[in-house]
Write a protein that binds this DNA or RNA. Structure first.
Lengths: 132, 132
DNA sequence: CTCATTGTTATGGTTCTTCTATAACAGTTT
DNA sequence: AAACTGTTATAGAAGAACCATAACAATGAG
């Protein structure tokens, strides 16, 4: 278990914590059934507020990567195995992108946008806007 | 040229604009040498402030995807061709991730973190923190 | 049952980012 | 010369992120 954060980064702390844990899952160091360290423990040990850690845990829960219950803690779900399944391909893609002079952030943004190119769901409060 | 934003999204507007343009480059609809529409034009047409658009343009410039100069505008660089080179692989990876029940955001975060697993650069203001 | 542990919820406050608005400036092109 | 471009400056409003503190409720160990 290794959680790394950089307070000087422009990425939100809770996002860094969540990303760290996803990385552990992808590397197989966190497997289905494993329990995440208690949020309070991570918080104090990391010099970060309890809620910041919990926000990260909740993001992972929303992604179906962990189950959370009071008193029991946050437990890694079987779905987390999918992350390690993709690890090799992600690294390969990263190598190619790096060779083309692309940063990790650029590739990540490109991945997010390329996949959500589908039509947005209905019922928007303000609706999306376009510019041609 | 198609720029799409969703004011209700949790993603920052400037990031959406930048992501849209990256997508255009990946699809080959924006090629090296092409000029991006003027920031003011995009702003008014999109109902968004000039600076919000410029922030997106500057991000693309920092990634080496466009060159910017006063009076001339923002011009797509040769490096942008790399995006379309990776498009097929990104879509393939996205399909696999989707089949495993993974969202685009999850995959994007995983990509960003898996690639930046290397040692952080030196000279941090506060230094990164770890938790074992 | 008792009790320590864990996530959950609530409240309030500070700081930072994002977005907007307006204006002037300085290269580039026509 | 004039229209168009990104650049810089200033200032404000709104929201997100983060922190601090406290109480609550489910779980598991003893």
């Amino acid at each position: 278990m290794l959680i790394r954060i950089d307070p000087g980064s422009d990425v939100a702390l809770f996002a860094q914590v969540a990303a760290s844990l996803r990385g552990e899952m992808a590397q197989g160091r966190l497997r289905p059934g494993d329990r995440l360290p208690a949020a309070r423990e991570v918080g104090t040990s990391l010099g970060v507020n309890l809620h910041t850690v919990l926000r990260a845990y909740q993001d992972l829960r929303d992604e179906g990567l962990v189950d959370m219950r009071r008193g029991r803690g946050a437990v890694v779900t079987p779905r987390a195995a999918a992350l390690s399944d993709l690890r090799a391909e992600i690294l390969a893609l990263g190598d190619r992108a790096r060779a083309l002079g692309m940063t990790a952030d650029t590739l990540a943004s490109l991945v997010r946008d390329s996949l959500s190119d589908g039509q947005p769901g209905t019922g928007w409060p303000e609706g999306p806007r376009e510019q041609v």
